[in-house]
């Protein structure tokens, strides 16, 4: 036990001594939360609009006034012909043009279709603003996220990505560094049980991951105003299962990699890329081809992010996420067993 304790102290010192890495590890969550919370939005806002009107009928005049009054659109220019508008859009000086034709009964909306989703939303908004449609028949209600803040969606995703990054990448590197520096040789030749070495490596990162988790949750609640609708207890429990899984992955990588460089590239390319791309954190899984959806079923963060979205944002009970949690638990058990069994007690 004393050995274990002194090991943990040693690992903690390694982490604390590298100030720059520490700064990044704790700065990253804060900066990411702020960026996603405030800067990165898909909101329709400040859309640069051109009015194409050789002749403005009173009706068109009204429409223009409505447009400029709305916070969505900013009218930047009025030009006589559609061609001029197109030129401005190509030069990236405008995003959308509203063309009032002579018949002034018809309106044409010309959008920059470069970003298909935004183009779609801009036209939707423009139509609504101009026509002021009497949609008495249809009511729309946004569940869970009435102001449609992107933070609601991203907080669980950031948790999924950062915990994976810190636990898997940092643990694997710290084991491989000992191999590279030759200290592993001494550790292995000592009477310490290999299991102690491994567990002692994992503990400081586990603590650190929990600190980061708490930071993220506090920031989400108090800075971004994301409600923690579900039970905090279960959020933490599920997160710990996930952290354990990430640690096991890190250990597995450290068994394969011989140099820090390989460990870095393995965790960055083979681990982080799929985590970001195929976990549904940025891009919806439903829109992907079947093959990729199949691949995505073995990506652990996918289940974690899914579970966190439900637990945190939708505020459902634990039984609603039992599928995700059980998949995570099974994966953790499997990976941990493999990682411990594969840990090399001798050199190669």
């Amino acid at each position: 036990m004393k050995q274990f304790y002194s090991f943990v102290i040693k690992e903690t010192r390694h982490i604390l001594r590298d100030k720059r890495t520490m700064l990044i590890l704790f700065g990253m969550p804060v900066v990411l939360m702020l960026l996603f919370g405030f800067a990165i939005t898909n909101d329709v806002k400040n859309v640069r609009t051109i009015i194409v009107a050789p002749y403005l009928s009173p009706q068109a005049q009204l429409a223009v006034e409505r447009l400029s009054a709305s916070e969505y659109f900013t009218i930047t220019a009025t030009v006589p012909a559609t061609r001029d508008a197109e030129q401005l859009i190509r030069r990236q000086q405008a995003d959308i043009a509203i063309v009032f034709t002579h018949q002034h009964q018809n309106i044409q909306i010309v959008t920059d279709g470069t970003d298909p989703n935004m183009a779609q939303q801009w036209t939707n908004y423009a139509q609504q603003v101009i026509m002021n449609p009497s949609t008495t028949l249809i009511n729309t209600k946004m569940l869970y996220n009435p102001q449609m803040k992107s933070a609601y969606n991203f907080v669980p995703a950031i948790m999924g990505m950062l915990l994976m990054l810190i636990c898997a990448m940092m643990t694997s590197i710290s084991v491989v560094r000992e191999k590279e520096k030759g200290t592993m040789e001494v550790l292995l030749a000592s009477p310490v049980r290999p299991l102690t070495v491994i567990l002692a490596k994992a503990v400081p990162y586990l603590v650190m991951a929990i600190c980061i988790l708490v930071t993220i949750l506090l920031m989400a609640r108090h800075v971004l105003g994301v409600p923690l609708a579900g039970s905090l207890f279960w959020i933490i429990i599920v997160s710990i299962i996930y952290i354990t899984l990430a640690l096991s992955l890190g250990l597995l990588i450290s068994n394969i990699a011989q140099t820090q460089m390989t460990a870095l590239l393995l965790s960055a390319m083979v681990l982080i890329m799929p985590v970001v791309m195929l976990s549904g954190m940025l891009f919806p899984l439903e829109s992907m081809p079947q093959v990729l959806q199949c691949v995505a079923t073995i990506i652990p963060p996918r289940y974690y992010i899914e579970a966190m979205r439900k637990l945190m944002i939708m505020g459902v009970g634990i039984h609603e996420v039992s599928r995700e949690v059980s998949v995570l638990t099974i994966m953790t058990a499997l990976l941990l067993t493999v990682a411990l069994a594969k840990f090399k007690k001798r050199l190669e």
Partner: peptide, 15 residues
């Protein structure tokens, strides 16, 4: 009359 209620956890998707 129609009521559309969308899960807006993912804002874009909901909208």
């Amino acid at each position: 009359k129609y009521l559309i209620a969308a899960n807006a956890v993912n804002g874009t998707k909901g909208a």
